[in-house]
Amino acid sequence: MAGVHITSVEVAGPGGAVPGAVNRVGSGSIPVRTYEPGGGATPWATLVWAHGGSFVRGTLDWPEADWVSRSFAEAGLRVVSVDYVLASETVKAPAPSNDVTAVVAWAGAEYDGPLVVGGASAGAHLAVLATLDQRDRHPDRAADALILEYPTLHRVQRADPRLADAVAALPEARRFRADRIAEMYDFYLGSDRIGEVAGGPAVAGELPAARLALLPPTIVVNADADELRASGEEFIEQLGAAGVTVSSRVEEGTVHGYLNRPTETADAAAQSRATIEFFVRELREMVGP
């Protein structure tokens, strides 16, 4: 992916760790990596991107962060990839989403043109919350679009017999059974205040319709054989009921996390590229020339 210009900067965060206390605020300083289109081209939009990793893993070097950002930059977007603080025994919600919010606010003030927020898996969840926070705090620079890649958005997913059949043959590491999802959210939210942080729900799929109605036009890509697809599809329905414009796609033949393995096989490369092309095509319709 020649020609993409990459720089690393630190963005002022919402807070920082207090000795002896659980960090529910965020980082004092947030590492970000910016990707600019090559050849001096003017970006047609700025995308703030959050990798996935079940809220507890992930780096700016993961393909889901680096390869994705390079791919979007090749398509003419400026990408700001966020190294948000990860949930741990001493870091709980909403610290990770607060970090993403801080970077969205920074990007909105730093760059002109359309502003897009997006993420993959747990990062998509953080992207939803950060988009709403940005609208609350900076309505004059609210995001123009939201993009979600195989998102997880609900602590409890509805049953879907179609998906049960599709994922039955997957190795356990690729499965997202109900108990695994519950454990992921319990750890992220913290056992002391599960589901309620800073006075309101911290789970995107549990937000009321009136709150979801504040989201901008949204693009969702779900993996095919992925139990978390049930969450993505339910969220699409919730957005539609709230009056939000939604464009969606299921990437056929994929499993959860395929953007972290974009060069594993020829099929993986084609599927990953098709996903990026879909996002770019839909984004151009929504926000750009």
Rank of each mutant, 00 (worst) to 15 (best):
R273N: 14
N260K: 03
G20K: 00
A65H: 03
V117C: 13
A109P: 00
R193H: 14
A41C: 09
V128W: 04
M286T: 13
L170K: 05
V117P: 09
A12H: 11
P37M: 00
E110N: 03
R193K: 09
R70K: 13
V246L: 07
Y111C: 06
E110W: 01
A145S: 07
G38D: 07
A166T: 01
E252L: 11
S88Q: 05
L47F: 10
L77E: 08
D99H: 09
T254K: 05
L212C: 02
G119R: 00
T46L: 08
L283P: 06
T101M: 01
T152C: 12
R284S: 14
P43I: 04
S231P: 12
I6A: 00
R141H: 13
G200M: 11
S88N: 06
G257K: 03
E89Q: 14
W106C: 06
F72I: 03
R174L: 14
Y84T: 03
V246P: 07
V48E: 08
E196I: 15
Y258H: 11
S71C: 05
V91R: 04
L207N: 02
I6P: 02
A210P: 03
V128N: 02
A50K: 01
D224T: 05
G232R: 00
P94C: 12
F187H: 11
P289I: 03
H5C: 07
S27K: 00
A210K: 05
M1E: 12
A266F: 09
E110I: 01
E206W: 13
D226P: 09
Q134S: 11
G243N: 08
L47R: 04
R162F: 10
A209K: 06
V287K: 09
L228F: 09
F55A: 09
G205K: 07
L214Y: 01
G26C: 05
P151V: 11
S88M: 06
A45T: 03
T152Y: 01
R137K: 10
G108S: 08
A87L: 01
T34Y: 02
I30Q: 01
M184R: 06
F55I: 09
W44Y: 14
P201Y: 01
V22K: 04
S54R: 07
T152M: 09
H125C: 11
Q238A: 12
A17G: 10
W62L: 14
T34F: 00
E196Q: 15
P37C: 11
E149T: 13
I194S: 08
V221P: 02
G52Y: 02
E196V: 14
S54T: 13
A124H: 01
T254S: 12
A241H: 09
L228V: 15
D61W: 02
A166V: 03
P63L: 08
V244R: 06
W62I: 02
L146G: 06
T59H: 10
R24D: 08
V22E: 05
L283K: 03
F72T: 04
E282N: 10
V103S: 10
W106H: 15
G190I: 04
G232K: 01
